[in-house]
């Protein structure tokens, strides 16, 4: 029985679809049976990022409304036999689907896969509730800026009310040289300290991600960009390996954290 993992964020554009595509691809690279589910009905993207948009015949809403069997709607990935995509409908709306229907599809697919990766739309309304309905676990994606972190916090609060383990965190678009003062960005440390959930991975800002999406080839398939490595490490952590986080935190800031824990001004 597979595990359904929803990728969510609250705020739009922080990298849910990119993360879904790459985690799915990286898990497939490890030989796992993976199904990607796009629940962003009306604004589907995952098919494009995967380069599969031309192969769509049926979509999620077709399945839910009984126009086809779920197997007929699944699209096999170009590169990996073991990677499939269930695309969202582009001509429908998020309110055309209910959480119960979503949970049903997820449960129908789970026995055939090791992992179901559910790409969630932005927001906390119906689309979010649909995406979360069938999930066993959640990964929250944020970027290191205040608005994204506040929304991530809101979403974590909502996820904590669901019957699932504490969500895991991916901090995306981290800039290596963003240490100058006055910068609006937060440290990964700040983000983790605020959200207080386990950090699953850090993905750097990488132009390769953009180019890969454009080409329809997730960056995880390319050998050695930092983002590609980051996604593959995230996949390994999902599989239970303990892969050290790329070292970001200097010893000093760790000490500062310990100090602040004990109420000493750092």
């Amino acid at each position: 029985m597979g595990e359904a993992i929803v990728i969510t964020s609250g705020k739009g554009g922080v990298g849910k679809t990119t993360t879904s595509a790459n985690i799915g691809t990286a898990l497939a690279l490890q030989g796992k049976q993976v199904c990607l589910l796009d629940t962003d009905i009306g604004l589907r993207n995952l098919d494009v990022v995967m380069g599969l948009e031309n192969r769509i015949i049926y979509d999620l809403v077709d399945v839910l409304e009984g126009r086809c069997k779920v197997q007929q709607a699944l699209i096999r990935d170009k590169r990996f036999e073991c990677l499939h995509l269930l695309p969202a409908a582009q001509t429908k709306d998020k309110s055309d689907v209910t959480p119960e229907q979503m949970a049903e599809v997820v449960n129908e697919l789970k026995p055939d896969y090791d992992y179901l990766i559910i790409d969630c739309p932005a927001g906390i309304e119906q689309g979010f509730r649909n995406a979360v309905a069938g999930a066993d676990q959640a990964i929250v994606v944020t970027t290191p800026d205040t608005p994204a972190v506040r929304d991530a916090d809101r979403v974590i609060g909502l996820l904590e009310q669901e019957e699932m383990p504490s969500p895991k965190l991916v901090v995306n678009r981290v800039r290596k040289a963003s240490k100058e003062k006055g910068d609006d960005l937060l440290d990964v440390d700040d983000v983790v300290a605020t959200l207080a959930i386990d950090l699953l991975g850090v993905v750097f800002e990488d132009e390769g991600v953009l180019r890969a999406s454009h080409k329809g080839e997730p960056v995880a398939t390319t050998p050695n960009t930092s983002a590609s490595l980051a996604y593959r490490n995230i996949a390994r952590r999902i599989l239970g390996e303990s892969v050290p986080l790329l070292s970001l935190t200097t010893k000093k800031s760790f000490l500062a954290r310990v100090k602040s824990l004990f109420g000493i001004q750092a």
Binding site: T146, V149, D190, A193, T194, G263, A266
Partner: peptide, 15 residues
Amino acid sequence: STRAERAQEVLYAEP
């Protein structure tokens, strides 16, 4: 100050 996420913007670090 509204950027409470940043460690350096603490008003009082002690209880």
